[in-house]
């Protein structure tokens, strides 16, 4: 069965979500992944939005975290203050898995979603943190979506919007942050994870039909690729769930 790379990304991330987890999700492909997880591997996972919607019944895919579609048949419609407090809270925050995206990522999983170039007078301005910095600061673990193109995987970010492992090892602790940090980076070509000790990114897997060079030439820092394994393509069942249950209008893929 043919599939798009965005479908592959959504499925790869969905497979990582554990049953019963509270899934913080943003816009776009992260919503697709969270919705897919509920149908595939984690039926008791809870989708949770920074806008304050908890466990929405997503009959249609929302196009923003404030879409009225996230407000339907929830356990609770709150606001930003409760949503972020739930993640900062030491008891509930550690149960949350956050899904984030960014314009740039560095070897320690720190993210830039603010500017390319100087902060004061950037070449390219992006949306900014939104809730990303908060989520990355607070929750137990994060999954990050990135596009695998030149200029995205950089040694040094132009602006550090959201903390990963900062300068590696116990960088989070030294900065005053809780444990947590990125567990997985999912791109349109590959999957990356982080070394348990150094917290540095390594290539963990690559998609069917993708040559190693295609991945390595887009990464501007030294990357360990010796542990990389092939990632299985989405199954027919997974694709049907994405297309028929999650996004029948094809708004995301």
């Amino acid at each position: 069965m043919d599939y798009t790379l965005r479908e592959m990304m959504a499925v790869v991330a969905a497979r990582e979500i554990r049953d019963g987890e509270i899934v913080f999700c943003g816009t776009g492909i992260s919503m697709l992944a969270a919705m897919a997880a509920k149908h595939i591997s984690a039926p008791r996972s809870v989708i949770f939005f920074e806008t304050g919607a908890i466990d929405s019944r997503l009959e249609e895919i929302p196009l923003a975290v404030a879409d009225s579609r996230v407000m339907y048949h929830t356990a609770l419609n709150g606001g930003l203050a409760d949503a972020f407090a739930t993640m900062q809270n030491r008891f509930t925050g550690s149960r949350v898995v956050g899904i984030l995206g960014a314009a740039q990522i560095d070897p320690y999983g720190n993210l830039n979603s603010t500017v390319i170039g100087d902060y004061d007078r950037p070449q390219r301005r992006f949306s900014g943190s939104g809730g990303a910095c908060d989520v990355a600061s607070f929750v137990g673990r994060t999954i990050i979506f990135m596009r695998q193109v030149k200029g995205r995987f950089v040694e040094k970010l132009d602006y550090l919007t959201s903390p990963g492992y900062l300068d590696g090892r116990d960088g989070r602790r030294r900065a005053g942050l809780r444990p947590g940090g990125p567990e997985l980076v999912v791109t349109d070509k590959a999957v990356f994870r982080f070394d348990e000790k150094t917290k540095r990114m390594y290539l963990a897997g690559y998609y069917p039909g993708i040559a190693m060079d295609e991945i390595l030439e887009t990464v501007d820092f030294d990357l360990d690729y010796n542990q990389a394994v092939p990632i299985p393509a989405p199954t027919g069942k997974e694709l049907l769930i994405l297309r028929e249950k999650c996004d029948p209008q094809g708004l995301i893929r």
């Binding site: 943190s129 600061s137 550090l160 900065a175 005053g176």
Partner: peptide, 8 residues
């Protein structure tokens, strides 16, 4: 505690 260690 949000933002410790960041450019924000």
């Amino acid at each position: 505690v949000s933002g410790l260690g960041t450019d924000i």
